[in-house]
């Protein structure tokens, strides 16, 4: 199983290369050697990527590269934090969204007590207000309805 997953890396690259190469071939004009169309360069680079991916796959079949260990909770925490920011900003304004994002990301860190998480969320929100709204004067809706 471990071997199969490690091979997935070059296979993903192969897929990406083929996606661009085939996309260029089918949807874009290639033009002539003299006057290249919009598809020529992506086709060339896409083909090169596919070739490199095949070499990489061959290398990997001989000596599989050890994969990094995934940490789903960390990914979830960061993903959730960014998503919370993007979700709450139109509803509540930037500062409450900031606090939510900090809380979500901090919630997956072990040994981080809730009072500290809340204090961090408040502190970062104040910091964002000071730096971005007051300092740089960026036209944010800081808190909606205020």
């Amino acid at each position: 199983m471990r071997r199969l997953t490690s091979h997935l890396g070059p296979i993903l690259m192969l897929a990406a290369g083929l996606f661009f190469a085939i996309g260029a071939l089918t949807a874009l004009e290639l033009g002539s050697f003299r006057r290249m169309g919009p598809g020529a360069f992506p086709l060339l680079v896409g083909a090169l990527l596919s070739l490199l991916a095949l070499i990489g796959l061959a290398q990997n079949l001989r000596a599989p590269v050890a994969m990094g260990r995934a940490d789903p909770m960390a990914v979830l925490g960061v993903f959730g934090g960014v998503a919370a920011f993007a979700f709450f900003t139109p509803l509540t304004g930037v500062l409450p969204a900031t606090a939510c994002a900090v809380l979500v990301t901090a919630s997956v860190i072990k040994g981080f007590r809730w009072p500290h998480r809340i204090a961090l969320a408040a502190g970062v929100s104040v910091g964002v207000w000071l730096i971005f709204v007051k300092g740089l004067g960026i036209p944010f809706t800081a808190i909606r309805g205020l």
Binding site: V78, G81, F85, V94, L120, A121, V124, G127
Partner: peptide
């Protein structure tokens, strides 16, 4: 304390 702060700074 650091990492949640970095994430928010990136978003903002």
């Amino acid at each position: 304390y650091l990492y949640p702060t970095v994430i928010v700074l990136i978003c903002v």
